[in-house]
Design a protein around this nucleic acid. Structure first.
Lengths: 239, 239
DNA sequence: GGACCCAATTTCCTATAGGATGTTGTTTGG
DNA sequence: CCAAACAACATCCTATAGGAAATTGGGTCC
C-alpha cells in the first residue's frame, strides 16, 4: 500500500512529531469551539475522513480526550461529546476552583522567585490590550489570556500535582467558553492585578482572598449564560 | 482473515464489554504491581503478544494510561512506565491530599445523608478484619480498604469534580504501594474511626482536622519506604 | 392508532501489513 | 585507548480489511 502523499490538511496544522498528537489537538479544538456540538455523537470514520487520516490515530486521540473528560465512551455505542455543564456542575466547578486556586495563589505569594513575581505582574498588566480586536478574535484572546494568568500562578505555586488538577478543571470549564461574556473584561483585569499585587507583596492570606473573590465574581459574571440559551438538558444520558 | 478463537487469556479476566477496557485494566494492574518495573520501557508488540491481542487495543489503552499519569510517551521512542515518586513529589502529593481530602471530609460532615453517615461508620468499623491474612494478600486487602474509605468520603462530599481529582491523585500514590508498611494498620484504623465519628457528628471543622492529621501521620508512616530500597533515581529522564 | 417484533444498515471493534524513524552495536580513524 | 561515524536492527506509527454488535426503519399484529 503506497503511503498517501500528505494532502493539504485544512483542519490540522503542520504536523509536529506524531500524527496522533496533531489529531488530538485538532479534535480538542473542534470540541472546544462547539464545531462538534456538546452531547452529540462522534462518528470515528467521518472524523477520520474529515482530517484526512486513518481511524487508528483518531481512536487513540479520543481515548486521551475521554480521560480528559471532553468526550464519553459508551461501551458498544461509540463516543459522544460531553454535554454542557449543568447549573449544579457549574457551581461545583467554581467551588473546587476556589479551593484549588486559592491555595495556589497563597503558595505563590509565600515561595515564588523574584523573577516569577515579575512575570505575574507583567502578565496582569498586559491584560489591558484585550479591548482591541473584533468579536470572536477578541473573545478567544481574552479567554486565552485569562487561562494563561491562572496557569502561571499554578506553575509558580511549586506544586505540579495541583497545577495538573487545575488544568484539568479548566478544560471542563472551556466546554462552554463560547457563551462567556466579555462585558466584565475590565473587572477581570482589575481583579487580576489585585491578585498579582498580593503575590508580589508576599501576602499569602491576601492572595488567597483576592483569588477567591475573583473567582466568586467571575462565577457571577458567567451566570447569565445559563439563561442566554436553552441548554437541551441532554435527555439521552441513560446512565 | 478468520477471527481467531479467544484463547485462554491467562493475564486478563473474562472480557467485560470491550477488549480495550480489559486490556486497560490488565496493563493498569501490571504497572501497579510493578510487574512492569517503574521507569522501564514498554514494548507494545511484546505486551500485545503477552495478552493475546493485537497491538491496536494495547495502543489505545496506553493512551488512556498516559492521561492517568501511569505511563509517559516520548514522541518517537515509545512508552515508558512512570518512574517512582521522588521525595519531593511524594511531599507534594500529601500536601495536595491534605488540601483536597480535608475539604471532602468537611463537606461530608456538613451535608451528608443519614444513610451515608451510616455507611462511613460501617466502613471504618469493618477495617478491623485486616489483621488476618498472609503477606501479599493482607497487604492488598489493606490498601484496597484504605482506598475505599477515602473514596467513600469523597463520594459523600457531593462534589464529583473533587472526587475525580482525588482518584487521580490516588493512582499516582499507588505507584509505590508495594513498599507501604502494614505496621501502622492499627493506627490507621483508629484515625479512620476518628474521622468517621466527626462526620457522623456533623462537625465539619473536626472532620477536616482529623483528616489532615490522619494524612500527616500516614505520610510519616510511609517515609521509611524511601530508605528501604535504593530507588534507581532514573537517570534516563532526559527531559 | 399504538406497540411490538424483525430485518437491513450503519457503526464500531479487532487484526494484519508495510513504511519511516530512532536506537544500538560495530568498525574505523585519531 | 577513546571518540565519532556508519550500518543493521528493532520498534513505533499509519493505513487498510473484515467480522460483530447495536441502532434505526419498516411491517405486522393487537
Amino acid at each position: 500500500m503506497a503511503q498517501q502523499e500528505p494532502r493539504e490538511g485544512r483542519l490540522r496544522p503542520a504536523r509536529r512529531l506524531t500524527l496522533t498528537e496533531d489529531v488530538y489537538e485538532s479534535i480538542k479544538t473542534l470540541v472546544m469551539d462547539h464545531i462538534l456540538p456538546p452531547g452529540e455523537r462522534v462518528n470515528i470514520d467521518a472524523l477520520a475522513r474529515e482530517l484526512d487520516v486513518s481511524p487508528t490515530p483518531v481512536r487513540e486521540a479520543l481515548a486521551r480526550l475521554e480521560a480528559d473528560g471532553l468526550v464519553r465512551k459508551r461501551p458498544l455505542s461509540g463516543y459522544t461529546t460531553t454535554p454542557l455543564l449543568s447549573r449544579t456542575e457549574f457551581d461545583d466547578l467554581f467551588d473546587v476552583r476556589q479551593l484549588l486556586e486559592g491555595a495556589t495563589a497563597g503558595r505563590a505569594a509565600t515561595h515564588a522567585s523574584a523573577e516569577a513575581r515579575q512575570r505575574i505582574s507583567a502578565e496582569a498588566a498586559a491584560s489591558i490590550d484585550v479591548e482591541a480586536g473584533d468579536g470572536y478574535r477578541r473573545h478567544a484572546a481574552f479567554t486565552a489570556l485569562d487561562a494563561r494568568f491562572h496557569d502561571l500562578i499554578a506553575e509558580v505555586s511549586g506544586s505540579p500535582l495541583l497545577r495538573d488538577s487545575i488544568t484539568r478543571l479548566h478544560s471542563h470549564l472551556h466546554l462552554h467558553r463560547l457563551y462567556f461574556p466579555v462585558a466584565g473584561a475590565a473587572d477581570t483585569n482589575t481583579e487580576h492585578q489585585r491578585i498579582a499585587a498580593a503575590i508580589v507583596a508576599g501576602d499569602a492570606a491576601a492572595a488567597t482572598g483576592a483569588m477567591r473573590s475573583h473567582l466568586s465574581a467571575a462565577r457571577e459574571r458567567h451566570l447569565p449564560a445559563f439563561d442566554q440559551l436553552p441548554v437541551p438538558a441532554t435527555p439521552r444520558d441513560s446512565a
